[in-house]
Structure formats: structure tokens, C-alpha cells
Design a binder for these strands. Structure first.
Length: 659
RNA sequence: GCUGCCUUAGCUCAGCCGGUAGAGCAUCUGCCUUGUAAGCAGAGGGUCGUCAGUUCGAUUCUGACAGGCAGCUCCA
């Protein structure tokens, strides 16, 4: 069983950091390839019993920081070594096991995992046994040694151990790579490190799940078993971790969607097909109205196009046969194949091209709430976040090449506006470029160069922070994505924009320029609110179900204390309804306490209890859900206050404790 | 699609070794006439995801399928 762990264990020194790079404690700094550290020697104090993270200066002005579990880098070392301890335990229990790789992960069902190859299926029944063996490894307190090896020696060593997968990894390493192995007791692993000084520095472990993962992340390859786990310096931290996970689950949109009666699905209808319930539909339509108004104010024009089309359209766009597997299969009518549309762009291109266009019309911004259907892999479906029928906040902007950067920048500003109103701060942006090696991308090199340069210019001039990915572009153009996180930390693309020079060419789109010459427009695909399925799913978690009043399905709930107050309550409700406030009267068929509880559970922004006092003085007593504060108003004051709150799309920070 | 796991009332979940099921909440009906998070009592509600197989007998064991969960792959 788990031995008693010293509470100070989290303060254990796990490694060192030099010039922002982490290393093992055991590794002499003189071996570290860091220009400023070459001359440095590890101060002997490093090995000493330093009780907490301190900064130690060594003579050459190199900053050496001791890492503990409180440091991000310290955590990483801790979990990385934890993965080794897991592997060591697995190897003891399953001698035939082959190890692949065991990295630290930020977002996942654990903090680290180990990928293994084993005929026998490891399932949750085995977890306890494995955990016990890991704790044994910890208790045995093996010192961890780093060893640099020649490539052929390393190959020989792992071959002898029967670790063919490791041999494969070594062989794939670049020729100049330093090959290091880490040894602890009878166990040795190919690894770059760094690691903790000994297994005794590790704490308590809990395996979380086992899943499949392809070797090298390639679906054509064999599937390994991926064993996820978490570890912490002490039991309390482990417990706290699982408590926080439970908290996060309460925000899960699938759970809140049911509790708040926002949406549902049905086996009879099909996976990934959402039924919006009246309450959820209000949220979706409020967003829609907002987006339509906003887009109208930004010069967008609305169009409507059909859900089905002849297959020719998708051959022109080259989505077929590229995406055949992700489309609902075709239906035959009049000797033609018709497809349900997976996207709106080819329709908009067709609209653009239906008559000659003048440069005077550009930029032309065609917007549509088009419902698209994609046959997503069954394993990829997830609540509202990944569905097969989706309503897109779509638009395509056709502009001259000279206008493209400005238009793209305007799209970025539009995103910033939406995100600001909704108080979305936790997101990051990605610029996805083409990998010239890959055959996935269509079009000429010059076209790609230009499209990528224009996109980058727009993003840079907008001053936004972004990371660059070198193989994530759409097949027709570079992509700018807004990435958001779900309550459990999984990442999703909330919005994607592309600057496209390819489709205008495919659809032979042109406009007449000032000088009478025919030119190709640039097309910008954009969808700031993404699909409303995913976006509402995200908002449910973002607001933990407590939607700001303007979005809330029910804005006011009136609770008459008893029958004599019903008339006043109903009259009040009528007055508010006339002003388009979403209000519901909960008649005294249940006790007041129960009705109050129910209003709270449904997270209704304003709860109005109406009793003798209110009727006599003709006033309103409103409790604000977000703050928990109760306040008296005249009917006029209340109406003005709530209308203003709705008009401003105000977000009131949650003050009261959620139950 | 792949790997593993899960599926019992509208919801959350009990149900040891095979002998046709239970709780809380919700719903309905009474009583109560309520002042800021659950008043009391009673009732209804389940072909135990579906279809096969094993068995005298399957919610329980086996298989297939469906739906869901986690991960991988994919994501116009």
C-alpha cells in the first residue's frame, strides 16, 4: 500500500533550470549545451537540502534555479519521471510488454501516459495492481542515472531487452542526435530527460484510463494501448485534483444542456443530430439575431441557398472526391447525383458568378445561416461540439487583391468584437500554412505564397498573437483559426477563416476592373461564431449555464407567494412581456421554498417574489441570480434596468456560490 | 473508422453467486396557503438499449448491432 508521504514532498528539489531550460540535478552543468552555461559548475548546494525553490547565482552570472513541484518545469520533470515509474511497473507485471513512448501531456485524461504494445488487454481491473507496483518502485527509491550512448550500443541494448519499438525510435532519430538513456534499478529507458534524482522523489499515482493510439499517430499503423495516469507529491493534492475534475464536469455542456432543458438527441433521429429545445433555441436565435444585425452594420448582404445540389458543384470545388467519406452519401434524382451540402462556399461562388461583376461592387460580402451536414466519424462526435448537422454563421467576402488585407483585418476585428461582448478571453489563434511536401494542397506555388503572405500580413498588422502551424491549411488556402477549450480542457476550433485564391480560379470568378480588364477576386471565408451548435456548446460551459440576461432563455421568473398575489403577478408578467422580456410566472402550486429553489437551479437571472408587501406598495422585489443580491424597484425602474442590461449585453460576474 | 469502457423509470443511481426489479428527484392527485435553495401524504411510471445464442429459467453469461463516454485518426 501507499506509504505515508511527508507533506513537504512537494518542496523536494526535482531538477534545475538554466537559461529557461530544465536539466537533471545529476547532470553536470558543464555538459550542458547552453552558451552561457558552459563555464558553470553545479554548485554543490544544489544537491543540498534546499527546502524550497531558491535562486542560486553561480560565478559566471548564469542563473540556476532549483525546480520543485511548484514550478511548471518542475511539474513536467515530476510527471515525466512518473511515466518512467509507470513503465517500470508495467514491465515487471507484463514481461512481454514493449514500450513506445511516455510523454507528459497538458490536456488529457491524465498528466502523462505510456504507450505500450501488449497482446493482453490492460483494463481498469488491472489498475490497482499496477498502481501498487508503481508505489513499490517509489518506495524502493532507485537513484536515476543518465547515460549517453553510441547509437549502435543503444540499438544493441534495446534489442537485447526485446524493446523493438524503442529500436525503431532510435533509428528514426536524426544522425547528430545525442542518445541518452535513463536507468533506475533494473529499468532503463531511452529518454532525453530531464528526470528527478531518484524514484523516491515521486509521490502518489492514480491510473485514469486506457485508450488506443496509433504508432506514430498514423491510422494505418498498428494500435498501441495508451495508459493515462496522474501523480502528485501527496495524497491531498491527488484528492484535490479529482475534486476539481468533478467541478469541471458540472460545467459540461452535455450535462447542463439536459438540466437546463436546452437541447437533446434521440437514438431514433441519429448520432450527432441535435434537437434544440425551446429554451436552447432562444439562445441560438439570440446569437443569430445579434450576428445578423452586426453583419448588416458591417456591409454584409444576406443570401439563402439550398441544402442539396448536383454533384457537379462539388467536383468544380474539388471537394469531391477529396471529402467523399465525410459527406452524406449521394441520392439519385433524374439520373443525377445530388449531395447534401457540407459547406456553403460553392453556392456563394455561384451567386457571385451569376452575372458580370464590376470592381465597384467589391468588396461583396455574402452571408448566410446555411445548415450544413457532414458525415463526421462516429468516434469524433461529442455533444454539441462535434455534430453532423450544423448551422453556420457563414459568409464569403469577395474583394480585389488590394482590398484583401483590409477585409481580413476587418474580419479579425469582428471576432474581437464578438469575443469582447461575450467575455471570451481564454483562446488562442493559429495561422495554418501549407506543407509544400504534402499532396493534400491544391493550386500553384505562387498562389500559395501570395495567399499566405496576405494572411500573415493581415494578422501581423492586426497585432494579434498567433502561432504558426505548418501543415494545417485548408486544401485551397491558408487558415486562421480561433482555438477555444472545453470545460475539461479539450481544444476546439471555434472559428476558422481562410484567404482563398483557389476557388475563384476554379469557379472562374472575375470582375471588370477600372481599366476594363477582367480580374480574379480574392475570397475570404469566415465564420466568427462558427457553427451555432459548437458555439452554444462552448457558451454553456463558458457561462456555466448562467447566461447573461440578454441570452438567457428565461429572463424573469415571478413567484406569487400565494393565490391572492396571482393577479398582480400575471399583470406584471404581461407588462414585461409587452416589452419583450422573457418572463414566466410560477403559480403557487408548490411551496414557495421549492419554487425559489427551482428558479435558482434553472439559473434565471431575475427572481421576483410577489407578496402582500409588493402588491400593497405596487413594487417589485428582485433577486439577481449572478450576485445573489435582493433589491426593490418600482415597475418602471425594474423594466428600465433590465432593458438596459439586455441592450448592453451586460455580463454580471458570478458573485454567489454555485450549488 | 480504430482501441477500451458504459447502457436498469423522464433524470441520478442501487440490485451479492442466473430465479422476470428498487431508491431519491421529477410527474400526477389530495392536503397545506407559503417571504428568498426541497411542507406532508398517496399514486402512476420499467418488454433492465435492440436482436440472437447458452440455460428448465437471462436484467445478470456469450455474440452481433445501436447509442453514449475517453483517447487515437479525421476535421472543407
Amino acid at each position: 500500500m501507499v506509504e505515508k508521504l511527508a507533506p513537504k514532498k512537494r518542496k523536494a528539489v526535482l531538477g534545475v533550470e538554466v537559461d529557461k531550460k530544465s536539466y537533471d540535478l545529476s547532470r553536470p552543468l558543464s555538459t550542458i549545451k547552453s552558451p552561457s552555461a558552459v563555464e558553470a559548475k553545479v554548485p554543490s548546494a544544489v544537491e543540498a537540502k534546499v527546502p524550497s525553490a531558491v535562486e542560486a547565482k553561480v560565478p559566471s552570472a548564469v542563473e540556476v534555479k532549483l525546480l520543485t513541484f511548484d514550478d511548471e518545469a518542475g511539474k513536467e520533470i515530476f510527471w515525466h519521471s512518473s511515466a518512467h515509474a509507470l513503465a517500470q511497473a508495467l514491465k515487471r507485471l507484463y514481461p512481454k510488454i514493449q514500450l513506445e513512448d511516455g510523454p507528459v501531456v497538458k490536456n488529457g485524461p491524465g498528466y502523462f501516459f505510456y504507450d505500450v504494445l501488449l497482446d493482453e488487454k490492460i483494463n481498469e481491473d488491472a489498475f490497482e495492481k499496477i498502481e501498487a507496483e508503481i508505489q513499490k518502485v517509489v518506495r524502493e527509491n532507485h537513484p536515476i542515472h543518465r547515460k549517453v550512448m553510441e547509437r549502435k550500443d543503444a540499438v544493441q541494448k534495446f534489442k537485447a531487452m526485446g524493446e523493438d519499438l524503442k529500436v525503431g525510435i532510435i533509428e528514426r532519430l536524426p544522425a547528430d542526435a545525442e542518445i541518452s538513456i535513463y536507468e533506475q534499478g533494473e529499468f532503463a529507458d531511452l529518454c532525453r530527460g530531464p528526470h528527478v534524482p531518484s524514484t523516491g522523489k515521486l509521490g502518489v499515482f492514480k491510473l485514469t484510463t486506457v485508450a488506443g493510439a496509433y504508432i506514430g499517430g498514423n491510422a494505418e499503423n498498428q494500435m498501441l494501448q495508451r495508459i493515462y495516469a496522474v501523480s502528485f507529491p501527496d495524497k491531498q493534492m491527488l484528492k484535490e485534483h479529482f475534486r476539481l475534475l468533478e467541478e469541471a464536469k458540472k460545467r459540461d455542456h452535455r450535462r447542463l444542456g439536459q438540466e437546463l432543458e436546452l437541447f437533446t438527441t434521440s437514438e431514433d433521429i441519429g448520432p450527432g443530430l441535435i434537437l434544440w429545445l425551446p429554451r436552447g433555441n432562444i439562445i441560438k436565435e439570440e446569437l443569430e439575431t445579434w450576428a445578423k444585425d452586426t453583419e448588416a452594420a458591417h456591409g454584409y448582404e444576406r443570401v439563402t441557398t439550398p441544402i442539396v445540389t448536383k454533384e457537379k458543384l462539388f467536383y468544380t470545388s474539388e471537394h469531391l472526391p477529396h471529402y467523399t467519406e465525410s459527406m452524406f452519401p449521394p441520392m439519385q434524382m433524374d439520373n443525377e447525383n445530388y449531395y447534401i451540402k457540407p459547406m456553403n462556399c460553392p453556392f456563394h461562388h455561384t451567386i457571385f458568378g451569376h452575372r458580370p461583376r464590376s470592381y465597384r461592387e467589391l468588396p461583396l460580402r455574402l452571408a448566410e445561416y446555411g445548415t450544413c451536414h457532414r458525415y463526421e466519424d462516429s468516434g469524433a462526435l461529442m455533444g454539441l461540439m462535434r455534430v453532423r448537422a450544423m448551422q453556420m454563421n457563414d459568409a464569403h467576402i469577395y474583394s480585389t487583391e488590394e482590398q484583401a488585407v483590409e477585409e481580413f483585418k476587418a474580419v479579425i476585428r469582428l471576432h474581437e468584437y464578438y469575443y469582447k461582448i461575450l467575455d471570451i478571453k481564454d483562446y488562442h489563434m493559429v495561422l495554418s500554412l501549407r506543407n509544400p511536401e504534402s499532396k493534400k494542397y491544391h493550386g500553384e506555388d505562387a498562389m500559395w505564397k501570395k495567399a499566405e503572405a496576405l494572411t500573415r500580413q493581415a494578422m501581423e498588422e492586426s497585432g494579434v498573437e498567433f502561432i504558426v502551424e505548418n501543415d494545417g491549411a485548408a486544401f485551397y488556402g491558408p487558415k486562421m483559426d480561433f482555438q477555444i477549450k472545453s470545460s475539461i480542457g479539450r481544444e476546439f476550433t471555434s472559428s476558422t477563416c481562410q484567404l482563398d485564391l483557389f476557388m475563384p480560379m476554379k469557379f472562374d470568378l472575375k470582375y471588370v476592373d477600372k481599366d476594363g480588364s477582367l480580374k480574379r477576386p480574392v475570397c475570404i471565408h469566415r465564420s466568427p461564431l462558427g457553427t451555432h451548435e459548437r458555439f452554444v456548446g462552448f457558451l454553456i460551459e463558458h457561462f456555466a449555464g448562467a447566461f447573461p440576461t440578454w441570452l438567457s432563455p428565461e429572463q424573469v421568473r415571478i413567484l406569487p407567494v400565494n393565490e391572492v398575489h396571482e393577479a398582480y403577478a400575471k399583470n406584471l408578467a404581461d407588462e414585461l412581456r409587452k416589452e419583450k422580456i422573457r418572463v414566466h410566472v410560477e403559480l403557487p402550486e408548490e411551496s414557495l421554498g421549492k419554487r425559489i429553489r427551482s428558479a435558482e437551479k434553472m439559473k434565471v437571472p431575475y427572481m421576483l417574489v410577489v407578496g402582500d408587501k409588493e402588491v400593497e406598495a405596487n413594487i417589485i422585489n428582485a433577486r439577481n441570480y449572478f450576485t445573489g443580491a435582493q433589491k426593490e424597484f418600482s415597475q418602471d425602474e425594474f423594466l428600465k434596468m433590465i432593458q438596459e442590461e439586455i441592450r448592453l449585453k451586460k455580463i454580471t460576474a458570478m458573485v454567489k456560490k454555485q450549488q
